[in-house]
Design a protein around this nucleic acid. Sequence first.
DNA 1: TGTATACAGGTTGTATACAGTAGCCGCAGC
DNA 2: GCTGCGGCTACTGTATACAACCTGTATACA
Lengths: 236, 236
Amino acid sequence: MSAGFPGPGEASKADLVHRQLKEEIELGELAPGTPLSELWLVERTGASRTPVREALRRLAAEGLVDLVPRQGARVSRVSLQSVRDLFDFRSLLEPAAIRQATEAATTDAELRRAFTAMRSEFARTVRRAPSQARSRSFYELADRFDWAIIGATRNEHLRRTIAELRPHTARLRNLSHVDPQRVEVSVAEHLRMCDALLAGDADAAATAMAEHLTQSLATIFRNLAHGPAEGLDLLG
Amino acid sequence: MSAGFPGPGEASKADLVHRQLKEEIELGELAPGTPLSELWLVERTGASRTPVREALRRLAAEGLVDLVPRQGARVSRVSLQSVRDLFDFRSLLEPAAIRQATEAATTDAELRRAFTAMRSEFARTVRRAPSQARSRSFYELADRFDWAIIGATRNEHLRRTIAELRPHTARLRNLSHVDPQRVEVSVAEHLRMCDALLAGDADAAATAMAEHLTQSLATIFRNLAHGPAEGLDLLG
DNA sequence: TGTATACAGGTTGTATACAGTAGCCGCAGC
DNA sequence: GCTGCGGCTACTGTATACAACCTGTATACA
């Protein structure tokens, strides 16, 4: 294996390692606290230390990895406080984002159509028989919805910051147990957001988003109180 | 110069290069658009390519450097749109931060004393004879004030995000001409923020911060209309 | 004259060798 | 038995060598 050739528009090895690790952390396959030695990652990914290092540094900047200067890297831990902080912060950013998306949708017909389509899908979701498949398809749809909001956010800083928070949210979902009851309520919340957005009512959209986030956090905390979370530190 | 020895608690070479470049970009010594070849930085800093690379990647993540995959790095450019985006984003974050700081100051006597002291300093500043020295000391004080707010912000994400925006703001100030008239008004705005904060009135503090940011942006735009900015792209 | 191609220089992406340190284990001493 | 110390191993931080790529220029050709 010779050196240096990430094709024309292709991704560099650092990109690949970064993406792979990010996904594994997000899915919970790499549990919080798992040590990430550079040499181990070299064996695991086939890349050399240089790209592995770069990937680790990037993940550390995103908060997915804790990097202790002369000691090594570990998958970042999740504390109760960090969950609170995450949702408080999202509650600040995402209502503002959906405001911008609402305004964008009033002028951009393409965008408007995309949200209309998603609204129909949400409505269909709620009618399906309750099952794991329903949960999964709902979360995929909700993900598309969130990314649509992000994409419609005009402010560069806001867009990038929200995008950077998403892996944390996703990881949290994958680390905790899915609450089937929650899905039903969450569908309703998404319908409210869609309706407000399509009606061009930015205030209502922002309120719906804030409410959605509040409910999501409440559900997480409730579930943590019941079933103990695997992979979550309850220290904070 | 042998390899590998960043003492016990000392900073690594990557840290040093990162800090140095960050400061130079912030001060405008490295103008927007300046190409940053790794080899050139190697000569300039005395470090080898590895730490230089890491520093560049970090700066890119902070938005201070634009990194084109196989082409190189340049000091990031500043467009009118980016200035607007920056201040819009700050207007979302910093009022929330000063809210948290206000609440923190009601319970933390130490913090309270620090803000009281700064309030006095602001009051003294306005009485000094108008001069460059006055401007400089004011901006230093304002910087300390901002950092105090950041330090008092409880939410980790909010704190880190605001801190990451500061170099952008500072650079903007250093790239544009200082408006002596602005200083006087800005002192008043800071006094209002201090008073609200010390009175424990989070709403008033947030409002004062929002107003301060609005006025700052307006001043920048006014000055751009008058004197043409050096180092600023007016493309956006 | 205009276009396409080949070449050269410089730059990044990657791999790997080396230097120094932190943590760990076993052992001696109290 | 417990504590302090010495050596060892594994790891990170750094330097450097090599390979591929991109840009711009000069040249050949229509």
